[in-house]
Structure formats: structure tokens, C-alpha cells
Amino acid sequence: MSQLADACSLPDVLVAEPDVLLRRAVKQVAGEIGIARVHETPDIHGAVREMELRPFSALVIALDHEGDAFDLLTLLRCGQYPSGASTPAAVLLRTGQEGAAVRLASLGVRETLDGPHSVRRVLDLIGRLV
């Protein structure tokens, strides 16, 4: 019963990342070490569906499709999702996307993480967000 209570007390974090190994490992280890209950999805479309369903304490999204990610963040900051307009967000950048940092900052993105992305770095990032 205490384990269930502990799991329920963890912050819910949404991770949208196409790399299944990174995504799965982040989810599993974040739960094991007790920093977050990670909900994972491979893309922004999945992230939108998740965000329409429930509030999250933080978001970590990969900038694979910049337009979709910017749209999601814009709607978030307009209060369109249960999470609330001020929900902490971080973005995982790929090589060559460093120029997006300025626009992301204007959308209230707290941190960007340059690739290559490791499980450890994403876990540390989540720890800072929550």
C-alpha cells in the first residue's frame, strides 16, 4: 500500500521523444528512483492527446517537428490544456536546431538540451523541472 501511495505522489511528467530506447529507459528509471511518473509518447501528436487528457507537472518534448512543437507550446502558454499555462517545459534539440533556442525561450521553455541525448541527462533534466 505504501508503494502505491509513493507512486501516486510522484509528479506526472510527459516525455515526447521518438527514440524508443531513450523514452522507455527514462520512464522506467524515473519511476524506479522516484523522481517522476513519466508518461511517454513518440511524437507531438501523441503529446497533444495526452495533454488534452490530464494535467502534467512538466513536459519534455523533442523538437523533431518544429511547427507542431511550437504550436503545442503556444497553446500550452495560452492555457488551452489542463496542465496550466505556466507548466515547466524543456525541449530536446537535435543537431542543427540550436537556432530554435531563442523562439523556444519566448515560449517559456525553461531548458533546451543539445543532442546526443542520454538517459542520464534527460533524467537530470526532469529532476530540475519538477
Binding site: V20, A25, Q28, V29, I33, V119, R120
Partner: peptide, 14 residues
């Protein structure tokens, strides 16, 4: 570390 072991275990599960 314990976290390293947890990460390796997660990859092993895949």
C-alpha cells in the same frame, strides 16, 4: 552506480 544499473536494466528489458 545504482542509476547506471537501472538504465542498463531498462535497456535489457527492451
Amino acid at each position: 552506480s545504482r542509476i547506471d544499473q537501472a538504465i542498463l536494466s531498462a535497456l535489457r528489458d527492451v
